[in-house]
């Protein structure tokens, strides 16, 4: 039983990362109705920026907001420069653009910083939270930061005018435009915010998985699984889904022998397929009904 509780808590901690990633995925999906396959690489690139600043001796708590701000600007710029011109292009063109972004960020990071694995220090310190605790200091800190960011986001969407405009622009662009919402600016904001949240996820998970150009692919996959599980139309669902994916991953890794280290990624595949089969709208998602 001890092992079980321990694993659930540990899963909760990694789930926080997946929740961040899933949230970033859902936010871009809400804004442009495409899944951004380059999301993970964008987050990885931001994390490298953070590592570089740390290596230059900047204090951790200054690096955090700075990197998020840079990522926000970067996301906005990508939306303006690369994505906007093909707004009305077919889905496949968008997917190819995402693949191109993926290649660019991956190769640029490898070129600038090299492919060797880099350890990233944790701002919360090493070791267990207290002697004999099931989770480490870093994981606890990670969880707290994730929770704070998620509640801030929730408040932003729930209570501010801009948040309302963003929701309106995503749910019904035409009507939103008619009442004076600048829909395209909202899409850009969505990209920027998603990119900043991705940067946060990257910075938080880097001390756990180590920094290298390919670190994000599997995390993105879990993020997708979380987003699908919670429902692609619901930010809260994405967060919940992310946590569930983290816990399921940890429990399956502990109790099902072969899956242990070898098949962890397959859990995401099975989760995605299973959720889509049983409840395609996800846990909290809206069912889209099409009029014929």
């Amino acid at each position: 039983m001890d092992l079980f509780i321990h694993q659930v808590i540990a899963g909760f901690a990694t789930g926080g990362i997946y929740a961040c990633m899933a949230l970033a995925v859902v936010m871009i999906y809400q804004a442009i109705h495409h899944l951004n396959f380059a999301q993970g690489e964008m987050a990885m690139f931001s994390t490298y920026l953070g590592w570089q600043l740390l290596a230059w001796g900047a204090p951790y708590w200054a690096v955090f907001p700075l990197v998020m701000a840079i990522s926000f600007a970067g996301g906005l710029a990508i939306e303006r420069i690369v994505v906007r011109p093909i707004e009305n292009a077919p889905v496949l063109s968008h997917v190819v653009i995402f693949i191109a972004l993926f290649a660019i960020f991956n190769s640029a990071a490898g070129f600038i910083w090299g492919f060797t694995i880099k350890p990233v220090p944790s701002p919360f310190g090493e070791g267990a939270l207290y002697p004999g605790a099931p989770i480490g200091k870093h994981q606890a800190g990670m969880l707290v930061v994730t929770m704070i960011v998620l509640s801030l986001l929730w408040a932003f969407f729930r209570f501010t005018r801009v948040g309302l405009s963003m929701r309106a622009a995503s749910v019904n662009p035409e009507s939103a435009r008619l009442v004076g919402v600048r829909v395209s600016l909202m899409n850009g904001l969505g990209w920027g915010m998603a990119s900043a949240i991705g940067a946060l996820a990257g910075l938080l998970i880097a001390p756990v998985v180590f920094l290298e150009p390919n670190m994000m692919l599997s995390i993105l996959l879990y993020g997708f699984a979380g987003a699908v599980l919670g429902g692609l139309s619901s930010p809260l669902g994405a967060v919940l889904g992310g946590f569930i994916v983290g816990i399921v991953e940890n429990l399956a890794g502990t109790y099902i022998p072969v899956i242990g280290g070898e098949l962890k990624l397959s859990i995401a595949l099975f989760l995605i397929v299973a959720v889509l089969l049983v409840k395609p709208a996800g846990l909290l998602g809206r069912r889209t009904v099409q009029r014929v």
């Binding site: 599997s218 997708f224 699984a225 098949l263 397959s266 995605i272 889509l276 395609p280």
Partner: peptide, 30 residues
Amino acid sequence: LPALRLEGVYLALATFALAVTTPQLLKLSP
């Protein structure tokens, strides 16, 4: 068959997961 119920983005996701998982399945020790 399961993909029948999926459209557009969801099918892209499921197949993306399949692609990412493939090397792991091929390395499976049994």
